[in-house]
Amino acid sequence: MLDVKRLRVLREVAAQGSFSGAAESLAYTQSAISQQIAALEREAGTKLVERSARAVRLTEAGEALVGHADAILARLQAAERDLEAIAGLRGGRVRVVAFPSAGASLMPMAVAAFRERHPGVELILEPREPDEALVALKAGEADVAVTLEAGFAPIEDEAIETVHLLDDPMFVALPGDHPMAAKARLRLEDLQGEAWIQGTSRATCPDTRIFLRTCAACGFEPRMAFQSDDYAAIQGFIAAGVGVALIPDLALTTPRDDIAIRTLVGVAPRRRVLAATLAGSARGPATQAMVAILEEVGRGWQASRHDLQLAS
């Protein structure tokens, strides 16, 4: 009989294209990966992987087995969910991945609420960028992914179900002594001549995609001064006068005193924050409970920040 753990190793070798990549992904040694594959080949009675100095390639048998492995592992996860449902919320596990600014703002409240209500359930939280979070969800590495819909690019994947948590507005951040800082509200086109600081990747950073599409809608192409994916660092660069930036509300839990945060009017970009789960099968009670708590936290966050903006 084939060992399920070794099937998971084979699937990861196929996904990563190398033993070293699979070892890093699974937190194994490369030697352990090699041993697991060799043992699986003995169980299967045939060669599954062609090894070379630079990479590995699955044989025809290996390809076929990986196809079955996906289905087998999915059924095992479904069985675990069924057992979790029978046990209720007295035990079990829920794995959540969340993008960094949500991890620093929404998730502490969600984790505290979940542990207070369901102390018997193991809760695992890992940081993942929005696109990576969806990959982890589909790979069976997470039960809930807190991710982003960039507004211009809704998530269209039949394998994924989403629940809207909140809309996250983006504000413009300027040096405290900037001439425009005297205004409470600004239009993005008023700042088209500025040097901008934004994320490093147009392809993988939703915030950068939102920023560039919004600038295009306002009729200009921004002049980039510096790139960083760390919003705390971006605040530091703004304070030093390197440039200005758009920063989402979830990343402004600790704004610096030496920068000015101003509301945008007219074309005002925002991010849609979502909780994503796999579609097509009943969610276990722990997963359902976490999604419900995330909805509560999202509503509370949005209401409190709205009240704060009205007061200011």
Rank of each mutant, 00 (worst) to 15 (best):
D3H: 01
V4C: 01
R6E: 00
R6K: 02
R6Y: 02
R8Q: 05
L10M: 00
V13P: 00
G17S: 05
S18Q: 09
G21E: 07
A22K: 08
E24R: 15
S25R: 08
Y28W: 15
Q30H: 10
S34L: 09
Q35T: 12
A38K: 11
E41Y: 13
E43G: 04
A44I: 01
G45H: 13
L48M: 09
R51E: 14
A53L: 13
R54N: 11
E60I: 12
E60F: 07
A64S: 08
A64L: 12
L65G: 00
V66W: 13
H68R: 08
H68D: 12
D70E: 07
I72F: 06
L73V: 04
D82K: 09
D82I: 14
L83Q: 08
L83S: 06
E84S: 08
E84T: 14
A85E: 11
L89E: 05
V97L: 04
F99P: 00
P100L: 06
P100T: 14
P100W: 11
M107C: 03
P108K: 02
A113W: 10
H118M: 01
P119N: 05
V121R: 00
L125P: 02
L125K: 06
L125A: 10
P127G: 02
P127R: 03
E129A: 10
A133L: 03
A133H: 04
K138M: 15
G140W: 12
A142C: 09
V144D: 06
L148I: 09
A150W: 05
A153E: 13
E156V: 13
D157K: 06
D157Y: 11
T162A: 10
L165C: 07
F171Y: 04
F171L: 02
A173P: 00
D177K: 10
D177T: 12
H178V: 04
A182P: 05
A182C: 15
K183Q: 15
K183C: 14
K183G: 10
K183E: 07
K183H: 08
A184G: 14
A184Q: 14
A184F: 13
L188F: 05
E189W: 06
D190I: 07
G199P: 07
T200F: 14
A203H: 11
L212I: 03
T214P: 01
A216Y: 03
F226M: 12
Q227E: 05
S228G: 10
A232Q: 15
A233D: 12
G236W: 09
I238C: 02
A239K: 03
L246K: 00
P248D: 03
L252N: 01
T253C: 10
T254Y: 03
T254M: 14
T254L: 09
P255Q: 03
D258K: 00
R262I: 00
L264W: 03
G266M: 04
A268Q: 01
V273I: 10
L274S: 04
L274H: 03
T277P: 04
T277A: 05
L278T: 11
L278A: 09
A282G: 15
A282P: 13
T287W: 06
T287P: 04
Q288L: 09
A289F: 12
M290E: 12
L294Y: 12
L294S: 07
L294G: 07
G300D: 11
W301G: 10
Q302M: 11
H306G: 15
H306A: 12
D307N: 14
D307A: 06
L308N: 05
Q309F: 08
S312G: 11
